[in-house]
């Protein structure tokens, strides 16, 4: 497993306590899991997605991500409607491991309240919480 210094923590995304990230892309927001989360889970073998069109509040479970011997629930970092899911992960779930902030994104949502993004942690705050966990 990675040491804290080895983790990729880009500063163009915001982080949630459950280790999801969210990045504003025009009107919409992309969501995925952090490098720390993918590293803890190990080799990802399956991602269970919500239906496009479903709506969730912030903090609601929207899917799961599975490794060989663990299942992690995914929680919405912000509320909104599901616009797209990353279907490339159906064939290649390993993208979550290889590129957690890029090709390994999970869902795209239309935010219910664009201000919610600002309530999430910045890179530096998230880094401090990770130090607390480690």
């Amino acid at each position: 497993m990675k040491e804290i210094g080895e983790l990729q923590l880009p500063d163009d995304v915001r982080y949630a306590e459950d280790h999801e990230w969210a990045r504003s892309e025009g009107e919409n927001t992309r969501i995925g899991i952090s490098d720390y989360a993918q590293d803890q889970l190990g080799d990802i073998v399956y991602v269970e997605f919500p239906q496009v069109g479903d709506t969730f509040n912030k903090g609601e479970e929207f899917g799961t991500v599975e490794s060989v011997k663990a299942v992690a629930e995914l929680y919405m970092p912000i509320g909104g409607e599901i616009l797209a899911v990353n279907t490339a992960l159906e064939e290649s779930p390993e993208l979550v491991n290889k590129s957690p902030y890029g090709d390994g994104w999970l869902i795209e949502v239309k935010p219910a309240d664009s201000a919610e993004l600002d309530t999430l942690m910045t890179r530096d705050v998230y880094l401090e919480t990770l130090k607390g966990i480690k």
Binding site: V45, Y46, E66, S67, V68, K69, A70, V71
Partner: peptide, 9 residues
């Protein structure tokens, strides 16, 4: 596919 099972989930 053990993640379906009782000892994990």
């Amino acid at each position: 596919l053990a993640t379906r099972e009782q000892h994990i989930r």
